[in-house]
Simulated scan of single mutants.
Amino acid sequence: MVCDQFSYFSELAKQKLTAKRFDHCLNVAKTAKSLAEENGVDPQKARLAGLLHDFYKETDSEVFVEMIKNGHYDSDLLSYSRGVWHGLLGADLLKQEYEFYDEEILNAIRYHTITDPRMDQLAKIVFVADYIEPKRNFRQVCLAREIAQENLDAAVLFEIRSSIKYMMIRSARIHPAMLNTYNALYANNSKLHDLIQKLEENWK
């Protein structure tokens, strides 16, 4: 069933997205599958979630604005952009347009940019896979990949921390869900911080 869905949505995504974005989705799907196998999560479900995470990334912003204005959403969402909307609202579009009802996968799509304290293992995997997929080439990605091999939660913590720093440097608004995830799940976990610090020191 999931394999059939992957083939079906692959064809749709290929038509819907630019070649570069589609390639990114395939790479995230492959990375998510690998992380799932390492962390005891259904690899086929992770693969499908990875494929679908950016399914609405190139949707016109006006579609999202109309959803926020006419739906049951916090109007504060209007102060963000498609970078937040394509996951949070894209999951609802996927449900509406394609009658896709797998809540685990939908939540992984919702949380892959802003995170959430309620993230399950699948959502964490998609969040991490999006950050470390093979075509990513920013400065700390090799370190992020190494952390992901050691501990999934440490990878989530490292990537939230890095994302917050990146947004602060650029004076970008940080969605409160990301701060809440950091505070609620990881801020007091010294073992994760110790692991990250150790790998950072080795990486330097």
Rank of each mutant, 00 (worst) to 15 (best):
S34A: 14
E201I: 10
K135R: 15
P117Q: 10
Y186V: 06
A46R: 07
V41R: 06
T31V: 02
C3E: 15
A49F: 04
V84R: 01
A155H: 06
D60Y: 04
Q121G: 13
E66R: 09
Y182D: 08
L17Q: 05
E159G: 13
N39C: 07
E200P: 04
L199D: 12
F127H: 07
E11Q: 13
G40T: 06
S190Y: 06
Y101P: 01
N70G: 09
L51H: 14
K16S: 14
C142M: 08
Q149H: 15
H24W: 06
Q197V: 05
T59D: 00
Y73Q: 03
Q121N: 13
K69S: 13
T31C: 05
A177S: 15
R82G: 15
D120S: 08
I164R: 10
L77V: 07
K45T: 14
P134R: 09
K16G: 09
G90D: 00
E99Y: 08
E159V: 06
R136N: 11
V41F: 03
K69A: 10
V41D: 03
Q121I: 04
M167Y: 11
E66T: 05
K165M: 04
D130A: 12
F100N: 11
M67N: 09
N27Q: 14
M1P: 13
K69H: 14
C3K: 11
H175N: 11
K14E: 04
L17E: 02
V65G: 12
Y166V: 02
Q197Y: 12
L89P: 00
R161A: 12
R82Q: 14
L17A: 05
V84W: 02
L88H: 05
N27C: 03
E200M: 07
V126L: 15
N70M: 03
F64I: 02
M67Y: 07
D76C: 05
P43A: 04
R170W: 01
F100A: 12
E103I: 09
A154M: 01
A148T: 09
I132R: 03
R47N: 13
S162M: 06
E58T: 10
G87S: 03
A13D: 00
L122M: 11
A154K: 01
N202M: 06
E11R: 09
K14D: 01
G83P: 02
L35Y: 12
T18C: 06
K198N: 10
T18G: 15
D42V: 04
Y80A: 10
D92A: 05
R82K: 14
A29F: 04
L185N: 15
K191E: 15
E159A: 12
H112M: 06
Y8F: 14
E200I: 07
H175A: 07
I114T: 13
K69T: 11
Q5R: 10
D76S: 08
N107W: 04
Y56V: 00
D23P: 02
V65M: 12
L94K: 12
K135P: 09
L143I: 12
A108T: 05
S79K: 11
F64M: 03
W85S: 03
D116A: 00
G40D: 14
R110E: 00
S162Q: 13
